[in-house]
Structure formats: C-alpha cells, structure tokens
Design a protein around this nucleic acid. Structure first.
Lengths: 197, 197
DNA sequence: GTTAATCCTTGATCTCAATCAAGAAATTGC
DNA sequence: GCAATTTCTTGATTGAGATCAAGGATTAAC
C-alpha cells in the first residue's frame, strides 16, 4: 500500500535532486484510492481536484459528444495523470477519466496540498515546471502526428513506440485515439498482417 | 526598441508578482532582432537556442515532409514563442518558424541566460512552470479540436475564438493548420457565406 | 503601371475512410 | 460452463474531402 512511494520518489529524482525533507513534505500528503472498471476517476463538468499517480493499471481520457465518445489519451502504470487543464485552470473538466483495466490503483495529491508543496518546498516549482514541460512535449508530438501522418503509418508508429498500448487497450479505444473508426483500424491491422507474413 | 519591455513585464505580472531586481536580472538578458518575410527564425534540424517574444507581427510553425509543408501553429504580436520542445529537450527542432507578416520583430533570451534566470531569481521557476502549463493547455485544446470537431465546425470555432487569424493569415496556411486542403477551406468559407446571408 | 508571382475560387473526378450491416470471436457474469 | 454482452472482423455502399485542372483576383516587384 505504500510500495508505490519509492517509485514516485524515483520519478522525481529523474527530474531534480530532492531533499529528504522536501520528499517527506510531499509524500505525507499522498492519499490512495482504487477504482473499479465502471467508476469514473474524474467526472466531466467538475473541476479536477486531484493529481494522480497510477500505481497499477491503464486509464483513458474520454470526451462525450452527443452520445458519441472519443478517447483522447491514455495513461499507464507508473505515470502521473489527471484532467490537467482543469487542474491548472480550476475550470470544469471536459474529459472524464476511466479505467481501461479491471481496476486502477491510484495515489493522489489534492490541488490544495500541491499548492502547499509549491510554496513550502525548495524544488516543488522546478518539478512542477518540468512536469508541465513533459506534458507539453507529449501533446505537441501528438499534434504533429495527427496533422502530418496517415492513419496506417500512425498505427505502425504506435506499434513501434508504444507496443504495450496495442496489447493492453481494446481496438475500439485505440481507433478513437487515432481519430479513425474501429472498422478502419481493423482493416489496417489485417493489411499489415498480410504484407509482412 | 525597448518599448516592448513593459509589455513583457506586464505579461509576467499577470502570472505572478515579480520584484524589480528579478525583473532587471531578466530584462538585461533580453536581445532584439527583426526578421524579414523569407528569413527563418528557427531552422529545422537545429537545437532551438532562443525563447522569443513577438513584439510585432505573426509567425507560423512549419513542418516539411517530402516537399509538402504543414503549418502546425501560429503566434501573434504580444506572445512568447519558440520551438519549445527543442528548447526544453535540447534536441533538434522538427519545425522551422517563419514570419507570416512582412517582418517579425522579436526580442529573445537565450537558453543559457534563461537557466541563469531560473537559478538566480526567486520567481523564475514559477513563471517557467506557468508558461509551460499555458503551452500545454493550448496544445491540449487543439488535440480535442482535431479529434472531435468536423472541419466546417472547426472553422466556425476559429472565426469565433480567433477572428484575427482569419484576417491576418493566408487561407492556405489556415487550411494546413486545420488539416485540410485550401480548396476544401475555400468551399467551407463560401458555404458559410451563402447560408448566413 | 505593367509584369510576374502568389493566392483564391470553382468544377470534375477519384479515393480513402465512414457508415451500415451481420456474423464470428472473445470476455464477462452468474 | 453457459448465456449474455462486448469486441472484432469482413463485406457492400456511401460520402466527404483530396486531387487534378484551369481561370480569376490580389499582391508584390521593379
């Protein structure tokens, strides 16, 4: 139940050297919750109040539009996630976040507690900046992919860069993430099977 | 030639209260350069070394792919810009940045100087974090737009949210930004003209 | 002011992915 | 383990946007 904390500390230390007192200040504010498959970790329309660390599982970010849903992103074991724009701006989230796996084990810190960390630790702001920068880089790369790469090549790129996605995520959610229909992704997949056999 | 500095200071103060000494430390590291229409502000393949503030003009971010170019973003007078992923990661930029307007008047701070600011001012990290967060929010909103909104509605949204774009940017670059061809955008535009006359 | 270059529009055709549909395969629930 | 649900595949058709093409409008160059 506290075994994920060393992993978080390690993630931080990849960014910046963190003192023991800073770490303690932060880690005391961490809480834990496990979500079932049908639960919503974050609800659309509510202000995101928590920054999560995914100790185990896969989650997806979903936008509902006139009873169609789009999956815009995923997070995996060992990553931080939340409806980040909402968390930052304190505006209602346009996403909901839901488990892909049977359960999602999360620890989290609230927005209020995180502001305390920013204010009262020496490296909090720096970690916050670097985390925001990393989020930006991901979204920026995705923008390029969506604008300049054809669906088939996008799937090959995904296979290459994120093979675990293809195995852990139902095809229909992957298709949505890629901006195509499940049928089209299914055909792309079978055309690849036939061409490299 | 120094008249843009108060505007920058004001931008910072919208984020956080900045002391005079911190401001001086930053502003004495600002340099100035004006770019002509055919010049490249940032070259693809090179590590972005400067963070720019656009004192006057419009610039666009371009990706070249086998002699096709895609415009992925714009920046306008009064905004910060650079090939941000490259600037952060110190990896070669995949974009080039070029003026849309006849000239682009820019002041800038180098990466080295900015690290000094992070290290030697009290609010540098906080401004850096907030700037990174803002960049993330923009890219995140764009991801949603590209995935969930049809081209025609995307154009209407652009008209509504960024009317100055439509007037200052050639249609072909706007089309590229929207992920469609100039012909299609032209037809969208005329279909709107006919329907709301 | 005239030429050249660039940009925008409009039309005709084509292509790729969406949609509609139905059955197969896999998972989930009791 | 069996039924029910969900997910995936495959086929036929449709449709939105790309491409190809050419003429007109604007802007830039000198």
């Amino acid at each position: 139940m506290t075994s994920y904390k060393p992993r978080i500390k390690q993630l931080f230390q990849e960014l910046v050297s963190i003192s023991d007192s800073d770490w303690n200040y932060f880690s005391e504010r961490l809480q834990f919750k496990q979500f079932g498959k049908k639960e919503k970790i974050t609800q659309a329309g509510r202000v995101e109040d928590n920054l999560y660390f995914l100790a185990d599982g896969v989650v997806r970010f979903v936008i509902q539009n006139d009873n169609k849903e789009s999956t815009t992103d995923f997070s995996f074991t060992g990553q931080f996630f939340c409806s980040y724009s909402s968390f930052i701006t304190r505006q209602p989230s346009i996403f909901e976040i839901r488990p892909v796996t049977k359960t999602a084990s999360c620890c989290y810190i609230t927005w209020n507690d995180l502001q305390q960390v920013y204010a009262n630790t020496s490296c909090g702001e720096e970690i916050g900046r670097m985390a925001a920068e990393q989020q930006f880089i991901r979204k920026s790369a995705r923008e390029v992919s969506l604008l300049t790469i054809h669906p088939k090549d996008r799937y090959l790129q995904l296979l290459d860069e994120q093979p675990q996605w293809v195995h852990q995520i139902p095809l229909k959610h992957l298709a949505s993430y890629m901006g195509i229909t499940p049928e089209t992704l299914s055909r792309i997949r079978s055309s690849i099977m036939n061409s490299d056999s």
